[in-house]
């Protein structure tokens, strides 16, 4: 079936600091535009919710227009609107959901409030085609670190484990601050780590071998802080590159080990890694190596699709429409802690 036979889905994402709008037919990506307020948050060392919400309002309709233009379609061509209903920042979510409702009402088209976390997995279909069922998904970002058993993107998502404290990306941001590296911390730590020796300092592996699929990165962050403080107290130069490499190795070691274990335990042959941290070069390399050793097919979307965007929401919307699920009503509420086992919000 050519993608032209499939409905055109407009996806809107405003759960954090990126205003994302995507246009998708089935597994085909037609348009993907993002306006980011990350520069406004950088000096605060993290996302400031009110700053993000203000930026979403400014960027919302212009980003919709840019996405339509880049996709070469008209608003009237849109068959359904999908929007992130949660999880995310309350005020930020509300801008996207309000706009999505207005578009749906004005166009007379159905509205689907969908799950941001599941969207991160669904986006892989735009790059690698339909997701085999079942698949394991490792979702790693600034706000989330989850292992998911995906039997069906639209109807059957099960959480296997989650972080019990900091998200992986949050640990990157905090360690970057300790090392005087800029925010967001992922890219600069990745760069520094490439110049360092990952075996020079062995940092602890949180919840390593505890028999769960949960994660913990708070202790690791504290271990790095202690190391930096001790080094400074002793009047030695802080070996930024080696610390970055040792920290990163600890994070990706646990992430990939638990993801591969989950595949093996559940007899699943396909692993998807997505979310902002999936752009990390060492995570990709180690996951490739370990999946190859274990005979697992690894799928990682290109970095542009791993970070927050509207295409991932449109991709999940396409799945939800294809599954024949009922649309959301216009009184759809945002849910800042929408659980991952609900791909479609009420």
């Amino acid at each position: 079936m050519s993608s032209l036979d499939q409905p055109l889905i407009l996806g809107i994402e405003t759960s954090c600091d990126e205003t994302g709008v995507g246009l998708v037919r089935g597994c085909e990506l037609l348009g993907d535009e993002v306006a980011s307020s990350v520069d406004q948050h950088a000096r605060f060392g993290g996302v400031v919710p009110e700053v993000a919400s203000r930026a979403h309002l400014e960027a919302m309709t212009p980003t919709v227009r840019r996405a339509l233009d880049s996709a070469g379609v008209k608003l009237a061509d849109v068959d359904a609107i999908a929007v992130t209903a949660g999880p995310g920042l309350a005020g930020a979510l509300l801008v996207g959901v309000s706009a999505a409702k207005a578009y749906a009402m004005a166009l007379g088209k159905p509205l689907y409030g969908v799950n941001h976390l599941v969207g991160h997995v669904a986006v892989d279909q735009l790059e690698h085609g339909p997701l085999p069922k079942p698949a394991i998904a490792l979702l790693v970002s600034g706000g989330h670190t989850s292992l998911l058993l995906m039997r069906d993107l639209a109807t059957d998502v099960q959480s296997l484990g989650d972080t019990v404290d900091d998200a992986a990306g949050e640990a990157y941001d905090k360690v970057a601050r300790l090392l005087n590296l800029p925010y967001p911390g992922g890219p600069p730590i990745d760069r520094a780590a490439r110049e360092g020796d990952a075996r020079a300092i062995r940092f602890p592996r949180g919840k390593w071998g505890d028999g769960t699929y949960d994660f913990s990165f708070s202790g690791l962050k504290t271990a790095v802080a202690r190391w930096v403080e001790d080094t400074v107290r002793d009047g030695r130069e802080v070996p930024v590159n080696d610390i970055a490499a040792g920290f990163q190795e600890s994070v990706v070691d646990v992430l990939t080990r638990k993801a591969v274990d989950a595949c093996l335990e559940h007899g699943v042959e396909h692993l998807v890694i997505s979310g902002g941290v999936a752009a990390n070069s060492r995570l990709r390399a180690l996951a490739e190596q370990r999946c190859a050793e274990a005979g697992i097919n690894l799928r990682v979307p290109r970095p542009r699709l791993c970070t927050d965007n509207g295409a991932m929401i449109a991709a999940l919307g396409a799945e939800v429409v294809a599954a024949g699920l009922p649309p959301s009503s216009l009184n759809l509420a945002t849910d800042t802690s929408l659980p991952v086992d609900r791909p479609l919000a009420a």
Binding site: L75, L94, S98
Partner: peptide
């Protein structure tokens, strides 16, 4: 109050755009 205020504005912007 900002959160409520933005509901009206986001709705207005999108309605005007769509119509």
């Amino acid at each position: 109050p900002y959160t409520g205020l933005r509901v009206g504005l986001a709705t207005a912007h999108a309605l005007a755009d769509a119509l």
